[in-house]
Amino acid sequence: MLRIDRACYEAIVAHARRDHPDEACGVVTGPVGSDRPERFIPMENAERSPTFYRFDPMEQLRVWREMDDRDEEPVVIYHSHTATEAYPSRTDISLAAEPGAHYVLASTREPDSTEFRSFRIADGQVTEEPVEIV
């Protein structure tokens, strides 16, 4: 299960809406081993694309080093789908490289509501999990 506070949840939804029709992406970091997403970090989508995202490599290096210095890890890795459901695509699955993270998908295909779902992706297997907003 993913437990996430309302402020982080709303920040992810707002980022997805802001960048629509391009995909938005980012992380919510937390102390190593805590499973608590606490620090919201929107990332640049280097692809600026409605169908693809990739963290900007230089920004990723900076953020990953900062996490290291603070003993944090990416608890949530999120991105948006702008024309399809909030479910990992084959591309998402084949590129997922953080088996310990909650992969959050937000779909902005409906103008008035944003679908928000969370998954574990490990060894090519997708497992959906409940989301609790606290």
């Binding site: 409605p50 169908t51 399809t84 990992p88 591309t91 084949s94 590129l95 997922a96």
Partner: peptide, 27 residues
């Protein structure tokens, strides 16, 4: 030297993904 797997993906399966060998996990 720092190695970081790219964080990437996307809503459409447009990426040319080479077929993987069984048991070979792509990064």
């Amino acid at each position: 030297v720092t190695i970081l797997p790219a964080v990437a993906g996307g809503g459409v399966d447009a990426l040319p993904v080479p077929s993987s060998r069984p048991g070979h996990r792509r990064i």
